[in-house]
């Protein structure tokens, strides 16, 4: 079960940062070719990210690249470079409708053929950053078998709503909940937006706890210090871990006996409870099978 508790953004035009992003322990590293790279440097950043993907070992950490949209002069060539480089997932910004994502899927598919990568090996992540996109979240989340997660980009989203971000995030509540629901309906992950206050540890923890409570699987982060904080937020308590172990054992017992009914302490355990217990153990870093 791949975890995506933290997805660490790295600007694509920063050679030293590209090399070492994974040492801080994120679940995914996200090399950015989009908003953090100026138009004059798009080509140079593309080369840096291509070489980083090809030449550096990221110790099993998922490598994601946020490409420019296909509606820009850069997007198609970004996709060539990163698929050729060996990227694990392509993240599309500003996904407003399923067709946006399907167009990327076609480009990725063609690139896989061109560069001899197994078909379907490159996954997709869609960032939704507009009202239109959020209202289409359900369709977007379900439209491609390559799609592993949808994310919300709060800055552009609140601008689209004609408002601003507040510490409590009330303006994002509906969007966040819709996003999570859309992800669950499609059986994929939901990733929360970045928190830009790098020095505001309390603020970050508050927002991360909110996201977790809403059902998000993880959060995009912009600084290594946030990686450890996310891990802390998502870490199950010893009691939760102990309980989860017992549930999983009970499920294994039932399976061994050929019984369809899992019971623990005299109570029946439904399938969702077992699945939740498996997720807890995954978050605790314990192998589930």
């Amino acid at each position: 079960m791949r975890l995506r508790r933290s997805m660490l953004y790295v600007p694509g035009n920063a050679p030293a940062m590209l090399r070492d992003a994974h040492i801080y322990g994120p679940d995914s590293v996200m090399f950015d070719l989009e908003d953090s790279v100026s138009p004059r440097e798009k080509d140079a950043a593309r080369h840096l990210v291509f070489r980083a993907l090809k030449d550096y070992d990221y110790a099993g950490v998922e490598r994601v690249v946020r490409v420019n949209g296909l509606d820009t002069p850069y997007g198609l060539e970004d996709i060539q470079a990163v698929v050729a480089g060996g990227v694990d997932a392509v993240r599309l910004p500003k996904t407003d409708c399923p067709e946006d994502l399907l167009a990327v899927e076609r480009a990725v598919e063609a690139a896989e053929r061109r560069f001899g990568r197994p078909s379907g090996s490159v996954k997709l992540i869609a960032a939704i950053e507009s009202a239109r996109g959020i209202l289409s979240a359900r369709e977007i989340a379900a439209c491609s078998p390559r799609l592993v997660a949808i994310a919300i980009g709060a800055e552009d989203f609140v601008t689209d709503l004609h408002t601003t971000r507040s510490p409590e995030g009330v303006e994002l509540l509906a969007a966040r909940s819709l996003l999570v629901m859309a992800a669950r309906a499609a059986g994929i992950m939901a990733i929360d937006t970045v928190f830009t206050g790098v020095d505001d540890e309390e603020g970050f923890l508050r927002e991360a706890r909110l996201a977790k409570q809403l059902g998000f699987d993880g959060k995009s982060v912009i600084h290594p210090s946030q990686v450890a904080l996310i891990r802390f937020v998502y870490e199950p308590s010893p009691e939760e871990i102990a309980k989860a172990r017992r549930v999983v054992e009970a499920a294994a017992d039932a399976e061994a006996k050929g019984s369809g009914v899992v019971s623990l302490d005299g109570k029946m355990i439904d399938k969702p409870i077992v699945e939740r217990a498996l997720r807890v153990l995954a978050l605790a870093g314990e192998a589930s099978e």
Partner: peptide, 9 residues
């Protein structure tokens, strides 16, 4: 510096 903090941690 995140790297120095990582080493120290």
């Amino acid at each position: 510096d995140p790297r120095e903090l990582l080493i120290a941690s």
